[in-house]
Design a protein around this nucleic acid. Structure first.
Lengths: 239, 239
DNA sequence: CAAGGTTATCTGGTCTGACCACTTGACCAC
DNA sequence: GTGGTCAAGTGGTCAGACCAGATAACCTTG
């Protein structure tokens, strides 16, 4: 039996999703007014507080602007939304947006080495020890999905070692976008399983306080995955 | 008369701020339960819907987890919060957190060149023309605050040229954190006013499709500002 | 005719009090 | 121990009312 936790969706969650889709999918363009809260409540068959909670959450992400007395209007999310919106954009209607996915992989490949270099500057032996522990758990896994989870865990420790709040929060946002896709992506990344050596080099470089080597090792860690994923996205995009 | 728009704060905004402060300032640690909605409403002297709207917004940022039937608990924001939280963390109680500010400047200095290189690969002459237009407006400004605003505008166009949604959203998040501080930071950045040449070089490199030069030019654009700011933060931190 | 005030009617903001749905833990029977 | 029952506390939702700001049409008024 493969049991998973049942997933509940409250009324306001559903309103949130529906309105978000309208905004993100371009049904409503920047500057367009949303229907009034009362109208939305009526159309969706829910109470006004439920609608309000959803709208407030959407406003929190910067997608709409609600003005007391005036209409709630849609903002240009390319201009006003933050990185927290990424998970919602990456997978829409349970389908992966390959153009955005490419952008995620690209950013990951470029920023990862920066973080690795910082980690080498600041992490020290303590960080290396923590990384060694993660690498140890790596060794015994052959399942690609589990491998990716360990890779995330590894980077989590690297980010900690880099001791930068901005990179920490960036990583959290990217992880929130990446993690739900891991099960689907695992099948594409079977070749990477077992390639432990770059991780060891990176760990050693961080332990030795050698930023340049760490940067290079990070590129070797991230490169193959990036190549596999970008190739797969290219195929998907052509279909 | 120096008049500014009056800033309104709704009841739920105030609840949002207060609870957020409790969480972020560590009054409530990870795992701790929040008071119940009814209790919060009573203590703060507001209605329960107002409390709920605030809590839903906080939950949206990943700072707390609310479970139907159970208590709403605080999450470790270093683990679960996204980049959108940055503005709230950077300036707290109307004071700048210098450690975080350092992290912001650092990330900006490292990521900017990456974006510039991408812009050179993808922007082309159209991007260069748009940048030229911004640079033109640069030339006639002597006020450091206005100079910084133009710099933000310049980078906005560069990010557009890079054609990467992830960097776009990152930039938006960082901008949201940086922009409110610009008036206060302007006084520290008087030396940069008039240093137009690096911007011109960067614009030319993007127009010519030369990523390596663009990267180097971006470093020259960002370097001086970073140095000034980091120096100022170091002094502030010692006080 | 232009400028400024008035008013009707939209919009979002807040409150009240009730009820439903879920979780938790204590207690009880087996 | 195991499972069932139940009460109390929590968040989720609803209805209806009223407050407060924005907007535009419609007046006055000079």
């Amino acid at each position: 039996m493969a049991l998973r936790p049942v997933q509940r969706q409250s009324v306001s969650d559903q309103v949130f999703d529906q309105v978000l889709s309208e905004v993100v999918d371009g049904e409503l363009g920047a500057g367009d007014p949303l229907p009034s809260e009362r109208r939305l409540a009526e159309v969706l068959g829910v109470s006004r507080p439920a609608v309000r909670e959803a709208l407030q959450r959407i406003a929190q992400t910067g997608l709409v602007e609600v003005r007391h007395g005036g209409a709630t209007t849609v903002r240009d999310f390319r201009r006003s939304a933050g990185l927290d919106l990424l998970p919602r954009l990456l997978v829409r209607d349970q389908r992966l947006d390959t153009a955005i996915a490419r952008s995620v992989v690209e950013a990951r490949t470029q920023i990862g080495p920066l973080i690795a270099a910082l980690a080498a500057e600041r992490g020290g032996p303590a960080a290396a020890a923590a990384l060694d522990e993660v690498v140890g758990r790596f060794a015994s896994t052959s399942d690609p999905v589990e491998w990716q989870r360990h890779a995330l865990e590894f980077w989590d420790v690297v980010v900690d070692a880099a001791d930068s709040l901005v990179y920490r929060l960036m990583f959290n946002s990217l992880r929130a976008a990446y993690e739900p896709a891991v099960p689907a992506l695992g099948a594409l990344l079977t070749d990477e399983v077992g390639l432990l050596e770059p991780y060891r080099v990176l760990t050693a470089a961080i332990g030795a306080g050698d930023p340049a080597t760490a940067r290079a090792a990070a590129e070797r860690v991230l490169g193959p995955t990036a190549a596999s994923l970008l190739g797969a996205f290219a195929e998907l995009g052509e279909e």
